[in-house]
Design a protein around this nucleic acid. Structure first.
Lengths: 191, 191
DNA sequence: CAGTTTGTTCAAATTTTCTTGAACAGACGT
DNA sequence: ACGTCTGTTCAAGAAAATTTGAACAAACTG
């Protein structure tokens, strides 16, 4: 029973032997997710859950990663919101238990769908707005300036085309269909 | 000559009429690039240059975006480093001039290549390290713990497989070849 | 219904990242 | 060679984010 005891008895020196490896992997995933625009801890927490055969409680997670319970609550809540972690519970237990959504692919799809696509659409809108704004000022301008505005207009069209190609690409990715990056390339070829 | 004068005379109220539109687009791109893990200003600067028919000086950029010269220098330097902006110069002029690399696609490729791929590779390495670490401890463990370690080992393999699929996918993207996202899906199907 | 246990929210404090102005360095013209 | 014009670097200050402990709320137990 050495390790079962070690798991809980002494807060200092009694980490299970695999803890080191676990944390290493969690950290790598944390960096990945941070780069990706999420909180570092989200990646860490998810990984710990993903590597655990059993659902875990917030207390266990806090202990494993040495976090305050509020930090766990916050990041875990966000993970649940993203569908990366599921709340489960056990009959007879009061605590909530958490387990990782194990289909990483499904997860990535959701993220791309909710975040990347929205952002690209906003950008597309902004480019459109800018163009409309230029249209309004155009009549007030004389020769040189008018040429300048026309140039900007053309460039904005190119940015829009590109963004739309990007949007299409991400949508295909989300739908799991084949993607041809050459589409992006061609979106900026007619000038 | 009204607008040519307006461009430079009065620092306060004399923005060219298209400035508003320009800034709007620049801001959208700034948000995109920030989300993307770069400095906000890199997107802004790049857009201003992209929308300008002529190469611009750092002073003009600073004035347009209301930035200090050091901020411009910093972000512009990084853009040059990423190949998103080129330094040019004009005979007879002492200042440096900058123009946007207009092939956005080429740019994206470089970014994915240098950043995303490196990060994924680091993660793959970390997962491998963690597994090796588990292998070392395995012999010291008894029944239950050993099963637990084996479980973690299997999960780490899955993470590795997934990351490698991701790496392959990005490499194809960079090479401009067709991509089948189903590869990712299948990378986590054998359990 | 009072007392625990568990989870969430909030404001304060810490850490990290960005921004700035000034000092520095290089290049050019005279 | 000197003075001027540019661009870069650096340390200090400002702003933004993360983190935490404590207060609060909700759910269950006896």
């Amino acid at each position: 029973m050495s390790s079962a005891a070690a798991k809980q008895q002494d807060p200092n020196d009694s980490q299970p032997l695999w803890r080191e490896a676990e944390l290493r992997a969690a950290d790598a995933m944390g960096r990945l997710m941070e780069f990706w625009g999420f909180r570092r801890h989200m990646g860490r927490l998810w990984t710990i859950l993903y590597l655990s055969p059993e659902p875990m409680t917030t207390a266990e997670l806090a202990e494993t990663l040495q976090l305050s319970s509020s930090a766990v609550s916050l990041s875990l809540g966000e993970l649940v919101h993203w569908g990366a972690v599921r709340k489960t519970w056990r009959p007879g237990e009061r605590k909530d238990f958490y387990q990782a959504e194990s289909s990483v692919w499904k997860l990535l799809r959701r993220v791309y769908e909710r975040r990347e696509l929205n952002l690209i659409r906003e950008a597309i809108d902004a480019f459109g707005d800018a163009q409309r704004h230029l249209d309004e000022t155009r009549s007030q301008l004389g020769g040189e300036d008018r040429r300048r505005v026309d140039y900007m207009h053309k460039r904005l069209s190119r940015l829009s085309a590109l963004s739309k190609a990007g949007e299409r690409l991400v949508r295909l990715l989300v739908a799991g269909r084949m993607i041809n990056p050459a589409d992006l390339q061609s979106a900026e070829e007619e000038d």
